[in-house]
Design a binder for these strands. Structure first.
Lengths: 201, 201
DNA sequence: TCTATTTTAGTACAAATGTACAAAAGCATC
DNA sequence: GATGCTTTTGTACATTTGTACTAAAATAGA
């Protein structure tokens, strides 16, 4: 019904399927059966659409309990949170495939990203501390290695979409589960005996 | 002197600096002070140039001792090999920033990539086995976790360039060292006491 | 119903790009 | 110096894209 919403919906679909390097305002219009001028009425250009979609994605992520209330205390809720996040990312996968290109064209996106990372980094450090206190993870790991782990988690979180398209080629839920597990496995060698039991439970 | 070589050189420079979405044959020609028809004489189009550069990069990687003779036996030579590989990747960074886009446009690249991965995967599995026998890494890690580690290593190896541009923003050698260390740290929790001592030595 | 506002469509234009082609210039060989 | 091959240039054309502008259609409020 709502033209603006339908434009965003169609754009997301086409961007995900074919990429922002191929899809123009005119393609979106043709797909919708409207004139490209009509799209221009709502969005200045394709970048404007991309930015709107990106902002929506970030808003949705920020509304997730994990980010709103801080990371989950137990290993299982953490794994569930990861899966939920990856599901959201999969829905907006074109962003991640063209992340650098988008960030180059729209510096605000880079700024927002950097801010988010520094917040999430602190959340993760707190979480690890919590896990150490609970005896779930090892206490003999240097601080810098935890820092590296966080970086690696976010690197994988941001680029598993690209890696999947390049190699594994999984679709939808299968892709999400595969990479949620990959992120889980990243954690494995940090677990104590107690942690392993809790994770297996 | 050699026009063809100079085209490849200039193209690499411009692609690295500005991205393949911005740079066309005409830009490369203008930068070189020659006509675009001249470039067309050597390369059918921009994708042809990209493919040639990609092939050269892969050839260079394959000539590295790590891949020619199999992975390094000691932890230090492994770390050195990683650094060398990342240096090569940095030189050809545009490929990694646009990896999915390039692979979509040129399916042969995807094919070559997949083949390479399956070879390297086996090399890594052998290396881990070797390390277990040497008592450098833990023997209580499930097979699937080692598999996941390999995937993670290659995911980071392929996309640290993008992550760096998005967040850390390091240049040249600094970027290489930072991410070589990140990959090294990924290994840390797998090390035995003996392994840690060898790594610190 | 009339009017003003919002929404949609049509068109037109400049700039950029890929591509093709012919001519000119350079160069080596006879 | 003539000949043939390689390299380089200039130009031209169709297509695509972003952008601007005007007019028509739809809608809401009086």
């Amino acid at each position: 019904m709502n033209t603006k919403e339908k434009i965003l919906e169609t754009a997301l679909e086409l961007f995900n399927k074919q990429g922002i390097d191929v899809i123009t305002i005119r393609h979106i219009a043709k797909e919708m059966g409207i004139s490209h001028s009509n799209i221009q009425y709502y969005f200045k250009n394709a970048d404007d659409i991309i930015y709107t979609i990106y902002a929506r994605h970030i808003d949705e992520l920020n509304e997730l309990p994990v980010f709103a209330n801080g990371p989950a205390a137990t290993l299982h809720t953490l794994q569930e949170s990861i899966t939920t996040i990856l599901e959201h990312i999969y829905q907006y996968r074109f962003i991640y495939i063209h992340f650098v290109m988008i960030a180059r064209r729209m510096p605000e996106i880079k700024k927002v990203y950097t801010q988010r990372f520094s917040i999430r980094r602190r959340q993760f450090l707190r979480l690890f501390e919590n896990y150490r206190e609970q005896g779930i993870v090892r206490t003999d790991i240097p601080e810098e290695v935890w820092e590296s782990l966080i970086r690696s988690i976010y690197l994988i979180g941001d680029f598993w979409i690209s890696a999947n398209e390049l190699t594994t080629g999984l679709k939808g839920k299968k892709a999400v589960n595969y990479y949620a597990r990959l992120l889980g496995d990243l954690f494995y060698p940090y677990l104590t005996e107690k942690g392993k039991k809790l994770a297996a439970a």
